[in-house]
């Protein structure tokens, strides 16, 4: 379970202080599929980044599986990120100089997994996402939909407990979106916790959602 207790996050832009999140409290149970909804700039991405230990909070407390992680040093947070979370970004964030399977297997590198095993696990996932024929293509040689599927595979390679997806269907066509949704559905049946953000309504995933959380100006409305 992940629990957020009165968290705030402020950024400083020059002399202006911007509150991206303001006194947010939320508890997400294991296996829950949570949709974060709200207009652009409402704090969804900041909340996702905080959940995934990518950004520190300004105040408040966070618990992950009964451990308070708000004060953890960065190398502890890196380990948590590596073992517990899978990230799917809106812009895919693949590395263009690497092939598809290399991109997918990157999260296994700091875990010391051998090259052979990394490739094997990457190929299994690529097969599941119908990308096995693109395994040796460089990331910039893939279409938008293929890139997002590769990004999904990368998020799943370390078998994370929690999957965080920031507008994962925004830059892909409906066919590719269906493939991604099918993967998310499968993950839900496996009992994974999924937190997904969209700025608009997404009828394709409505049946999967357990709870919708609305963000507005950094607060849960």
């Amino acid at each position: 379970m992940i629990k957020f207790d009165n968290i705030t996050k402020s950024y400083r832009s020059g002399k202006v202080k911007i509150k991206a999140l303001d006194d947010v409290s939320l508890a997400i149970k294991q296996g829950e599929f949570v949709l974060l909804n709200g207009p652009s700039g409402s704090g969804k991405t900041t909340f996702l980044n905080i959940t995934g230990c990518l950004t520190r909070i300004t105040s408040g407390r966070i618990w992950l599986a009964d451990r308070e992680i708000s004060h953890f040093p960065d190398h502890f947070l890196s380990a948590i990120r590596r073992e517990k979370f899978g990230f799917i970004f809106q812009q895919f964030n693949l590395i263009s100089g690497y092939t598809t399977w290399e991109n997918v297997s990157i999260p296994l590198l700091p875990m010391g997994v051998s090259d052979k095993m990394r490739k094997k696990r990457a190929m299994n996932l690529l097969e599941e996402l119908n990308l096995e024929t693109r395994a040796d293509f460089y990331a910039n040689e893939l279409s938008g939909g293929e890139q997002q599927r590769a990004a999904v595979a990368r998020a799943l390679i370390n078998d994370p407990e929690i999957i965080l997806a920031d507008e994962p269907l925004s830059n892909i066509d409906s066919e590719n979106a269906k493939t991604v949704i099918a993967v998310l559905e499968k993950l839900k049946t496996k009992g994974k916790t999924i937190i997904i953000s969209f700025h608009d309504s997404q009828p394709l995933i409505t049946k999967l959602i357990d709870r919708t959380v609305y963000f507005d100006s950094g607060r849960i409305s």
């Binding site: 400083r12 520190r56 909070i57 300004t58 105040s59 708000s70 004060h71």
Partner: peptide, 9 residues
Amino acid sequence: INSQADEQY
């Protein structure tokens, strides 16, 4: 260690 200020980070 208890500070959450940006400076601590």
